[in-house]
Design a protein around this nucleic acid. Structure first.
Lengths: 260, 260
DNA sequence: CGCCAGACTTGATTTAAATCAAGGTTGCAT
DNA sequence: ATGCAACCTTGATTTAAATCAAGTCTGGCG
């Protein structure tokens, strides 16, 4: 594999690569383009310098393991670009994706000695890694940061409860509609430019990932998306994007109002 | 409805009742029998006095609403006796129970203005209610309490991820086996006496609640429990208890190993 | 003490989604 | 440009669990 313009910043295979020295200095967090959409917005200028010195930036290509189920929980991560999938597995290989962490989201919190979940990159991902002792120092030194993390975990719990409602009680059609709307919301939160982001959803993950997230099979996901396309509720766009043609209808479907 | 010895401490209907003055004084938390199994174990003697003065104790009979989906999130609760169910609903009445909070567990955290979930008592419940401003004062005044809450929410998130795996990828049989084992664990954590608690599970909730927790129907729950009983994996006991006759087999079933 | 409502169980049938089975697309590597 | 491997789509059939349909059990009340 030779390097191409698109992937030149990333390792071809085998492991994480640390970003160049310039990206690790005390300024990194101060100039971070998504810091106001993340935990880091709780920090003043001095705190941002402390964050930069407590963390290392990693760049990872698609399909890389960030965290392995059952391995020692040594680090905490903040995603600053791309999308990460979090999942749990059964011994026979069945897998449930419990969430996607887009730019601005954190992952890797654990009170146990080992991670109870795995995490892998979906596309090209940039993240900041905090080793546990360093995170704990930050929490103690910056009460606003700790309060912000508590709020962020509380929000994740509310999201998880919403996903339980989806998994336990929604139909395939309702699940896919909910997913597409969530991806639209994620894209809105993530995109920095106001460039025709309206009604666009970012869907960088495969059908297998979507199925494992919604508790369905790839065939059911594919059929349902095809049906939405045929009904002109959505349209495919370039770059793994989907344009949502009728947000209102999809909202009705997602919340269980019958809209056939 | 006239009062009976069993329910005399509770209101017959209509609303919460505050416990007698003696239970609200500065000593309440100091003498609380489950404080070491809850968030409150992060507090020293002075902190326990502050907790007691920041909260009121409530006693509620079965089937009472504690928190209503969509209502202003004014309070945070710590369950000190009994079992509470947390749930989310769809407009057409479909319901997903997202968790059961037994003695020692908290509920009611929210960063939004309104609760995104409902909460109701399953049996006779005792809980401590903290109004939001008072909780925030406690968090600021007692850093160990805030750290403990962060850990507790992190644990809840891990539980929620485990439940997503169950809802999305487990069979009915695996779901019910997992549930019974969880109820056994909850009973062990809750019971203070070592009185033949071994292999006992506390199941105070109805089949409807179990079904809404596991993403099944009551018929499927009933059939599955009957099948386990016929296979001598479990046996019914008094007081809404179930004795687990083969923990090992149930563990195998719960984790997807085929054990027919 | 026996009635009754709510909770639970069991059986028969239906159905939404899974599984099985081909193809079709796409994009990257040679 | 071409081949191929991974990904996606569509169709036919099966199946696990839902739904429909009776009962049975239980405990609190008159």
């Amino acid at each position: 594999m030779t390097s191409s313009p698109q992937t030149s910043a990333f390792v071809p295979a085998g492991g994480a690569v640390h970003a160049p020295k310039a990206d690790m200095d005390v300024m990194r967090c101060l100039v971070c383009d998504i810091r106001n959409k993340s935990l880091c917005n709780s920090m003043d200028e001095e705190g941002l310098a402390a964050l930069a010195q407590s963390s290392r930036q990693l760049l990872l290509p698609p399909g890389m393991t960030i965290v392995e189920e059952g391995e020692p929980a040594l680090a905490f991560f903040n995603v600053t670009r791309g999308t990460v999938k979090l999942f749990k597995s059964l011994p026979d290989g069945r897998r449930q994706i419990t969430g996607f962490a887009d730019a601005g989201q954190f992952l890797g919190l654990s009170t146990a000695q080992t991670y109870s979940f795995g995490a892998e990159t979906v596309d090209n991902v940039r993240l900041c890694r905090f080793l546990r002792p360093q995170l704990e120092t930050l929490l103690s030194d910056y009460p606003t940061f700790e309060r912000r993390l508590l709020a962020a975990v509380t929000d994740k719990l509310a999201e998880a409860q919403e996903q339980m409602l989806l998994l336990g009680r929604k139909t395939a059609r309702e699940k896919v509609a909910s997913f597409l709307l969530d991806r639209m919301k994620a894209f809105h939160q993530t995109a920095n430019r106001r460039q025709e982001v309206e009604n666009m959803a970012s869907v960088p993950m495969t059908r297998v990932d979507i199925a494992d997230y919604l508790g369905l099979t790839i065939e059911t996901v594919s059929r349902t998306i095809s049906a939405f396309r045929r009904s002109l509720l959505i349209a495919s766009a370039e770059n793994h994007r989907i344009r949502i043609l009728s947000v209102a209808t999809l909202l009705n479907i997602a919340s269980g109002q019958k809209t056939d």
